[in-house]
Each structure stands twice: as structure tokens, then as C-alpha cells.
Computed example of a mutant assay.
Amino acid sequence: MKLQFLDPLYAHPGPVASVYLDTSRDLDEADGAIESRWRRLRKSLLAHDADRATVDAIDEAVGADREVAGRHGQALFAAHGELLLTQCLPEPPVRDTAQYGMLPDTLPLALQHAPDIPYAVVILHRVHVGEHGGADEKLEIDCESGRWPTGRVAPGARSHRRTPVDTWPKEVEELAGELAAGMDTAGTETVVVAGDPWAVNSLMRAAPSRLQSALVTLKDGQHRHREPGRALLEEELAVLLDGRLPDRDRHQLDTFLGQRARHPEYVEGLPAVVAALQRGQAQTLLLSRPVSLDRHLWVGAGPGHLALTGEELNAFGLHYYWEEPAPGAALIRAAAGTQAELIAVPDEELPLEDGVAVALRYTSS
């Protein structure tokens, strides 16, 4: 998974206020509950010396995801009185948190983006318009794209159109072409199709071979109604995509396994990871889920300014550095700043020393 969506957070110097808040709408008096939770976090930020302008910038954005139904959360970041980034989270945080420090607390946000699988959904419905039965029979076409799992609460482009049933044979060729093009432009890996069996079968037949390999069809009536602000076929997508990795991540994981088999001391464990990120040598940062990083790191102003001790940074000629209490934030900043990607894998599937590893861009031997 690429980390460029975090770039706005690293374009500004710290300190940064980082807030993770449960903004679920699946209970009565949701607004009051959200306001109460935020009030506690606001007091905590001010008590930890966050300036009032920065806290006020977050205050204005809290609850801005009110159009999204169901369980979800919000991540908000601000610095020097400016809101830097706010995103709706597909899952509410385990607990509400507010931190004020030199680095933004980006690890929880990055993990909620992973594995970042590009997908598309197509729903085909036959409807009758007017009083003449088949003469006014139409086919409604709903299409939506997104990236899983953030697409649950932040789906991408959506289109809706209606076409006469007798023109569907021509329309289906165009639709198949659009979906195939999405595999090139957006990297779409899974296309879920549901609805009228005749229309679905027509799309299957019209799809070029590379699109057919990505198509997953659902039985008519199997799909559920879409809740406000949430993805089409959200529950079905969860069954299909939860626990999967995108193709690129699987390739990077294979690269890591090969490197670990030859030189585990270069790619696994916190010392190896820090060394690779220092040199900009990491292609991919791997983290075990659940993430458990309990060792402080030392960091400087630049993304490659990362070390196990302050003495090491001093030996590099740095005179401004600090001990960072959130090692996850330091690792994610270093990965994003050196264009490394992120893969999060369950610990039971891939145990890692210290819970961290890297796939290298190149090796010295």
C-alpha cells in the first residue's frame, strides 16, 4: 500500500495534534455522545500545551462525517491553527485518543487504509416505467468504485444511468469497456456484479478475458440496500476482500520472504528496519497485526533521521533530534518520506521479529 495520502501531514513542521474519535451513528443521540467524547479529548490537548487555534481547527471538523450511517470513526490532524487532514475511518478507534507531539500519530490511520484493494461494483436492475409493461421496461445501472476497506465509508466515483432494455446489448459493450479501462487507470482487481440475471450474464459475455478474471457475480436479490454514505454491496465486499492482499502487496511479500531466507539479519527486526529506512533502502515496511511496538526511537527533522539512540543521530552530524515516544509514528513517517510502501499482516500468518520487517529495494550481496 502506498502512503502518499499522508503527505499533507509531513508538509508542515510540528507540533501536530492527532485525534482519533468514534463518530458512529448507530445509536440514539449520536451527536451528544460524539460531543461528549470530543470535549474530553479537547481538554486533554489543551492540558498538553496544544494551542487553542489548533484545537479550534479540529473542533470545527469534528462530526463532519454525520452523513455516514452506522459504525465508523474520524481521524483529524491540525497544526499551527490549520486543519491538515481529516478522514472518515471504516472502523471506530478502539478508544478515543488525542496526542500533541512533533510527529503526527499516523499509524492507526495507515492501518485503517490497509490493504487498500481497488475494486468496482455494478448493480443492474430491471424496472417498469409507465403503464405498458415491457414497452417501457428499463435497465438501471449503478456503478461505484473504491479502495477497500476505506471505501466502506468513503466510496469513490459513483454513476447511475437508465437505458431501455432493448438497447442494453449496445450499452453492455460500453460498460464492459469502461470496467476494463478501470483495471488500467485505477488498478481495479475485483469487480462485483449483482442484479438482473439476464443483464449480468450479458455483461459476463461482453467482458474481455482480462476483465472476466476479475468479475465476481452475485445471485439476483443477494445484494442489500445501501446505507447513506456507505459503499454499495458493503457486506458482500467484506466477505470477498477482508483478509486479502492486493496483487502488488503479494509480490512484495514474496520478495521479502526470499530476502529473509538469504539474509534475515538485513530485513527483520527493529534494528534492520531502522537501518534500511535510514538509507532509503526499504521498498516496503511490513508490520504484524496487532501492532505492538514498545521501544522508543530517536528522530530528527527529516524522514531518514531515524535511529535506535540519540548518540547515533549525533554521530551522523545532527544537532536537533528527540526521543519519539510513538515508534509507529516514526516508522510510518520514515516509510512515507522515503517512498516505501506498507503491508500489514496478521501475526499468526507471518510472525516477525519485533513485529517489523522490510523488503529491500536492493541488497549489497
Rank of each mutant, 00 (worst) to 15 (best):
G156M: 05
W148P: 01
V153W: 00
A157G: 13
D166Y: 11
P169E: 13
L124G: 05
A186E: 11
M183E: 09
T185V: 14
A110C: 11
W168A: 03
A120M: 04
P155L: 04
A186F: 05
T185G: 02
L139R: 08
R158S: 10
A176Q: 09
G151N: 03
D136R: 07
D136N: 12
V172S: 03
K170T: 15
I141N: 04
Y119K: 01
R162D: 09
T167F: 14
D166Q: 13
H160C: 06
L124P: 06
D166L: 09
P108N: 08
P115L: 02
C143P: 00
A157Y: 13
R158Y: 03
H160R: 12
I141C: 10
L109T: 01
E131V: 14
P149V: 05
D116I: 00
E137P: 04
D142Q: 13
D184M: 11
E140A: 13
L124A: 08
A186V: 01
E171W: 02
V165I: 11
A120D: 01
E144I: 03
I117Q: 00
D166I: 09
A120H: 01
R162F: 10
P118F: 01
K138A: 10
Y119R: 00
P149F: 06
A135R: 15
H160A: 09
R126D: 14
H113R: 10
